[in-house]
């Protein structure tokens, strides 16, 4: 791992038009996000549904146009490239999608699926059957799987096929959207271990998008937490998990049910529902649900402040072990 970033994202916004007739209205799915992914590291994007994490990943992969900002990959600006100019970039950056089986073309055999990147990029001079066998053995599947169809695979096997396809062209960056979604607990570990192992052996950088914090804790070097299309906190995974500074991060971490019946739950419950992107709250967008919210929070939006390796967008970052104030305290 080096500090040399392979991917640089600066102030990226993604807007979607809403409403039929008045097309001028737009909502911001991603509302200005900046981050780097360094060579060989695993970077995790965490957030709940509607936080914009998948939209951001698709924007990085060029599947979603951005309305503002810059994306630089291996020194080249890639935002706004057309399909043809983007094609060489796609050899260096591959993406895995949520549904392990649904992201595989149902009438293609495993052999055809894993060698599809070679055919798309017209890479000659390779024996595709040998390549299929090589890729399957890299992801730990028996080579006789080449003739199987996606519906004949279990979720874990289908996910391995997806991984094999993602590494086919020796990319420098893999974007994995919910790599453990739809997988049984006993299989999740297999897939994560495989990704980790490949990352080390092939020197890949990885960007993982997930809502599963337990997974992030084990695989990611750095983590960014998203809320309503913005980063509320980002930094080294161990630091963020060890002592969250943003109240939302703290609430997310405390909300994870743990498989221990004797554990006493000292939970930070979030009142109210997630606001609609159509009606973003003024000031700090988390203040409607924040147990620590102060009058200042609804007046002015916090700017992310850097403290060491960590950035936090909060007017009153939490001290380690902070507990939410009780009703009377916050009223006072």
């Amino acid at each position: 791992m080096s500090d040399d970033p392979i991917l640089t994202v600066r102030d990226v916004q993604v807007s979607f038009p809403v409403g039929g007739l008045r097309k001028r209205d737009a909502i911001l799915g991603v509302a200005g996000v900046s981050f780097d992914v360094r060579r060989g590291e695993t970077f995790a994007l965490v957030g709940e549904s509607g936080s914009g994490k998948t939209t951001l990943a698709r924007a990085v992969n060029g599947l979603q146009a951005i309305s503002n900002g810059e994306i630089t990959f291996e020194g080249q600006r890639i935002d706004g490239l057309d399909r043809k100019s983007m094609k060489p970039v796609r050899k260096r950056m591959s993406m895995m999608f949520q549904d392990p089986v649904g992201s595989l073309s149902p009438r293609m055999t495993v052999g055809d699926l894993v060698t599809e990147p070679f055919r798309i990029h017209g890479i000659e001079g390779r024996n595709l059957r040998d390549e299929a066998a090589r890729l399957l053995s890299l992801v730990g599947l028996p080579t006789d799987f080449v003739s199987r169809f996606p519906h004949q695979l279990s979720g874990g096997q289908a996910r391995r096929v997806g991984v094999a396809r993602a590494i086919a062209l020796d990319p420098a960056l893999i974007i994995a959207d919910e790599p453990t979604a739809g997988l049984d607990v006993s299989v999740q570990g297999e897939v994560l271990n495989l990704l980790n192992d490949l990352r080390e052996r092939l020197g890949l950088a990885m960007m993982i998008i997930t809502h599963n914090l337990h997974v992030v804790h084990h695989v990611a070097d750095r983590t960014a937490v998203m809320y309503l299309g913005r980063f509320v906190e980002a930094g080294d995974t161990e630091e963020v998990f060890g002592a969250p500074r943003h109240p939302y991060t703290a609430a997310l971490l405390s909300a994870n049910p743990e498989p221990d019946p004797d554990k006493t739950h000292d939970r930070i419950t979030l009142p109210a529902e997630v606001p609609s992107l159509l009606a973003r709250p003024p000031g700090c967008e988390f203040h409607t649900r924040c147990p620590w919210a102060q009058p200042a929070c609804s007046a002015k939006a916090p700017t992310p402040t850097q403290e060491g390796t960590r950035a936090v967008a909060c007017h009153f970052p939490l001290e380690p072990g902070a507990r939410p104030p009780t009703q009377s305290e916050s009223a006072a």
Binding site: V185, Q188, G189, E190, N193, H214, V215, H218, V219, P259
Partner: peptide, 24 residues
């Protein structure tokens, strides 16, 4: 026993090699 071990939430220590149940 194996299933409980596999839950990444059960591993409080950060590990790069998560337990699994091999086989189908």
């Amino acid at each position: 026993a194996r299933l409980l071990e596999c839950d990444p939430a059960r591993q409080s220590e950060r590990t790069r090699s998560l337990p699994t149940i091999p086989g189908e």
